[in-house]
Nucleic acid binder design. Structure first.
Lengths: 368, 368
DNA sequence: CTCGGGGGAGAAAACGATTACTCAAGGGCT
DNA sequence: AGCCCTTGAGTAATCGTTTTCTCCCCCGAG
């Protein structure tokens, strides 16, 4: 008691050595560091944060202890006491697609630049899973939940997104819709779109300018947002040149290579006449190319072809594919930037539309 | 005091309403729920966990409160008290490449299936950044840190990986090397490889079996692990058929389309003779294809071509590319599975080699 | 009629950091 | 000499949950 009384008056060894009696069990805590350095936990915390005067000698002792114990802070504890910025979550159907990958890269890039972690989750089109993910992200205190990809904008969709927006907002997070139809004003969500209509307009106009009049449009699924917007662009371009819109040349389907292949093969079998094809996606264009070639038609000599997306391999096809470049990476970066800027109340921009761009390669030529 | 005394004796409203006087500030806590339901926080926690007897009536009250307050647990608090499994981190140079994407998909899939979050981080080849990420993942209490991609296995590399392995191990995490050279035994790391040598052996043998003798090998960078292993496979296959290895046919370079293009163009310009090309990567093969075509050579009529990786567009080239399939997705899944199984001390398997497979398409034909 | 036991609920101690308070010592002033 | 301010350090409250103790009540057995 006597010798204890002396050191207990001020010494930091007050109630140390509570339970960590055994040797090396689990990662070391700030208390271990404090013990080793012979200072209080507060001093360790402050030394590491570097926001408080600490004598050089103390700092050295602390740093030595930190090194020798391989100490790292526990994020959870840190977060609990308020010092950690939430991560950014990216929710996609499937990371594998070339365009989604670029969005992911953009998100990761911007998140990292701002000191956030980025989580990647895929839904595989399962809305229940999407619900779960939103819940999970609320738990994680995600700064932003970025959902990417076109959809069929029906009532159920709008209800779900409205719920997400409100739920995330209540948890201090924010919903970001990328390449998806925007929500009614007033809902706490950020939307980053790209100009589907304009892109399709440019693509179609490019074919029209080359002299094509019967342009096969390989659309996406009926009702699917991006597909409908691209169709509008296609129609508008025809209209602008007073070329009549022919419904039989407008064939819906999937955004896949196989679908493109089948539709062109069937169209040729049915004797449909056209001199150019505008595929709603590069993948569809690849399928179309295969079907045309199989039918003995040469691209671009016999039929011209334009895609949409400008995926990396578009330039490597034979012929290289004229297509519409979508700024996927920029889309991802913008999504994150908008939300994080808003957190610092810099620029409360809520809805951005990025433009698309025609990339001219070899797959278009005037009709014979 | 009098009426207070009665309720204070047992009522849960003991020291509630501490500060949350104002209306809606921030997400609601378990205390808010407890208050609203008129029970203690312990009861709420137990009701939600469902691991303790709770009367039906109480449960109903709690659930109602949870719903109306849109309550979600705070992961950090939960993790702090020990109830949360750490995430799985994937560290790559650049998520954009088609193969890395598949690894990521595999990791995400397996992590999700086991209730873990997956973090994706890219280094862009910066080792300092890699160091930071390992540190960060220790803080995050990541269950596994999966690092993907070939490297030059020099001393510095081994030192760095050994440090990572130990640092992560000390933090209760685990280093997983995917498609990278393994570490000296005894180091706490898990390695998941695929059979580069075997794949190259198959590819080369396929060409030899078709009758080719002078096979141009477009390698990767000298010293780069996967490239060296693929070279070994190439040499072994030649050896097995007693075809001499000709150094001038073995040209190192980058794993890029452009590099493949340049090397083949230069080889043709230099008058080098060969009837087949084995590209160490599909991207390189695409470049080679372009150069051959530009020189008026037809594939596979004049020159045969084999790639490595089986990226998705390999099947869409003209001609479709014969190549070596690497089980990228399986690589990612295995990495996660091995570590998580080990955590449950099921099967402490530490080193796995997945096999590769020859995919025969149209780009190979006997020499003329 | 008492006592053991189980169901149901609350109080309080972790979990690992951060940070508002306190407090002591020493230096510059008046 | 007395006082205030700056430096440097420790104490303890707090963050939101989980979980271990307690405790109470009621029921059935002896």
């Amino acid at each position: 008691m006597t010798e204890n009384g002396k050191s207990a008056r001020k010494g930091p060894e007050a109630k140390r050595a509570r339970r960590k009696t055994a040797g090396s069990e689990g990662p070391s805590t700030i208390r271990d560091v404090a013990a080793k350095a012979g200072v209080s936990v507060a001093t360790v915390s402050r030394t590491l944060a570097g926001n408080y005067p600490v004598s050089a000698e103390t700092r050295a002792r602390v740093m030595t202890a930190v090194k020798s114990l391989h100490y790292v802070v526990n994020v959870h504890a840190k977060a609990l006491s308020g010092g950690v910025a939430g991560p950014v979550a990216l929710v996609v159907q499937d990371i594998t697609g070339p365009s989604l990958t670029h969005v992911a890269a953009g998100v990761e890039q911007e998140a990292t630049a701002r000191g956030r972690l980025s989580l990647v989750c895929s839904t595989h089109g399962d809305t229940a899973r999407e619900d779960d993910l939103v819940q999970l992200m609320r738990e994680q205190h995600a700064a932003a939940v970025v959902i990417v990809g076109g959809v069929v904008p029906d009532d159920a969709y709008h209800r779900r997104m409205a719920d997400y927006a409100r739920a995330l907002d209540a948890a201090g997070s924010r919903l970001v819709l990328v390449g998806r139809p925007s929500l009614p004003a007033g809902l706490p969500a950020t939307v980053v779109e790209y100009d589907n209509r304009g892109g399709a307009f440019q693509a179609t106009s490019h074919l029209l300018a080359a002299g094509h009049r019967r342009i096969l449009f390989l659309a996406g699924e009926t009702g699917f947002s991006s597909s409908e917007q691209r169709r509008e662009g296609y129609k508008d371009a025809l209209n602008a040149r007073t070329v009549p819109y022919t419904p039989e040349l407008d064939i819906p389907g999937l955004y896949t290579r196989t679908s493109g292949y089948r539709r062109v093969r069937d169209a040729l079998d049915a004797g449909l006449e056209f001199t150019a094809v505008f595929a709603a996606t590069d993948a569809v264009a690849v399928g179309a190319l295969a079907a045309l070639r199989e039918a003995g038609l040469r691209v671009p000599r016999d039929v011209s072809l334009v895609g949409f997306d400008d995926v990396p391999f578009a330039a490597d096809l034979t012929p290289s594919l004229t297509t519409i470049r979508v700024p996927y990476e920029e889309l991802g970066r913008t999504a994150v930037r908008l939300v994080l800027d808003r957190e610092e109340s810099i620029a409360p921009d809520d809805h951005v539309v990025l433009s698309t761009q025609l990339v001219i390669r070899e797959s278009v030529r005037p009709p014979r």
